[in-house]
Design a protein around this nucleic acid. Structure first.
Lengths: 261, 261
DNA sequence: GATTGTCATATTGTCATACCAATGTCAAGC
DNA sequence: GCTTGACATTGGTATGACAATATGACAATC
């Protein structure tokens, strides 16, 4: 990637020559860096099963020899994989393939949402789509033990309408519980990360009068639909709940704007 | 991350001492690595808007001074961000914030799929949820120009039922077009990335007899609902389409199993 | 006058080396 | 037996050097 495609075509060149060059259809030179290459190789090894979760890699000094690269370049690759949560490294202990791949997705979505400004309403829209699925799925598959746990959570929420922090924690547990029950790890990843991004807003919304009692009511509706094994009703109840949450969020924003003015 | 919390409590220590230590309530030392820290800082800078897309960063030597870190540590951070596609670095030119954030999600999901086996059906479930939203949204908001484009695409698909590769490209454009029209960047990200992961499978499925004609039929149904501005029907048609695609995929898998046997 | 070659300079990419810090091992000592 | 401490191994950090690449200025060439 040392030359850019655009480099061949200067915008101020006369039209005729530009077309000539365009017709040549040369492909830009791309030279991947060593660390890039090492990263790809390691990913491939994991993908092939040559490296399994928890397995230890050779020491950095040994890997230098195997890859025929300097320790700097090798480390840039390993550090990248460590930071992203694919590998896990400790002094004295060595480097190994991370056991929990979800940390990776977490990091990634966190970055993505940080570097790209995603609207809160965008996030909520995705939540509505995904959690509609989790609620419906729970209504179809929930076992008595699952139902008991959800009922406990809602009961505790009912007791916590004077403790916003505790309420938020219970609310989170409720939604993640449903996502977990969906048996779809990608959904669980996405829901938990999006929820993490919304965390600050949640606390603010709960400050609104009646927010928590209303929220309890909505959660009870979702739960009832799940108990009744009515998946369509569960989906609808979840979407009603999240929709109401969006509206509450708007009110909270307006409220804080009024206070600023 | 040089100390682990567990390090204070050895599992083979006698019970009494364990309790003593537990009562001490010391907080575990957490020392994040320098490169980790730098990465976080840069992400935050981008998040805050202090660093905008395309903007150049100071040179590595300058950054060393600002961060008060060695070039090794700094480079490990920059390299990580480069490999992930957040930054873009060239010798002689410098390092800048990447213009195209989508490369990032691409890399990431590629890794994720490589290191963790995600069920194709999990991906399709998420697609159904998200693309249900995009179809409904398109039915509500599509302008005449958008409709024309979608109609063109479906028409071309109809002409390409003997060219699986072209067909797949048109199909992709159709779905991404809807996602783009949803005006929800997160949905666009997720849909395009998931679709990218499914790409191989798509080609295989289209080899099945009648797969492409059926697919055209389903796309026409979606399009018709959008033209009619019937969002519920559009959502249903999209889900029917993706559901059918899942079933076709299963057939394709069974087919290839039969051939192996 | 336009193209081409050359050089100085700034920058990232790579390498080698040294030292620090955390951990595991194991023998010595109580 | 348990602790203690020396030692080796390993990842983490720092530094200096050189190579490879991009850019602009300027001379050389046609």
């Amino acid at each position: 990637m040392l030359y850019r495609g655009e480099g061949l075509l200067r915008p101020n060149q006369p039209r005729g020559q530009q077309d000539k060059v365009t017709r040549l259809k040369v492909r830009p030179i791309r030279k991947s860096s060593i660390s890039d290459d090492i990263v790809q190789q390691i990913i491939t090894l994991i993908s092939n099963g040559d490296l399994k979760a928890g397995q230890r890699l050779p020491s950095e000094r040994d890997l230098c020899v195997k890859f025929a690269a300097s320790r700097s370049s090798l480390r840039e690759a390993l550090r990248c994989l460590s930071i992203m949560g694919v590998l896990s490294a400790r002094p004295g202990e060595g480097t190994s393939v991370a056991m929990d791949g979800s940390k990776f997705m977490e990091t990634v979505l966190h970055w993505r949402m940080s570097t790209e400004q995603h609207d809160i309403e965008d996030l909520m829209e995705v939540r509505m789509a995904l959690e509609g699925v989790t609620a419906a799925s729970a209504a179809r598959n929930a076992q008595p033990a699952d139902l008991k746990k959800l009922q406990d959570l809602v009961a505790k929420m009912d007791e916590s309408i004077d403790d916003a922090k505790r309420f938020a924690a219970l609310d989170l547990e409720f939604h993640l519980g449903l996502a977990r029950a969906s048996n779809n790890k990608l959904i669980l990843d996405l829901v938990s990360v999006i929820r993490g991004q919304l965390e600050r807003g949640v606390a603010k919304v709960l400050q609104l009068p009646h927010a928590m009692p209303l929220s309890v009511r909505e959660h009870k509706d979702i739960l009832q639909a799940i108990v009744d094994h009515d998946s369509e009703k569960a989906r609808a109840a979840m979407q009603t709940h999240l929709n109401a949450a969006v509206l509450r969020h708007r009110s909270a924003v307006e409220e804080s704007l009024r206070q600023d003015a």
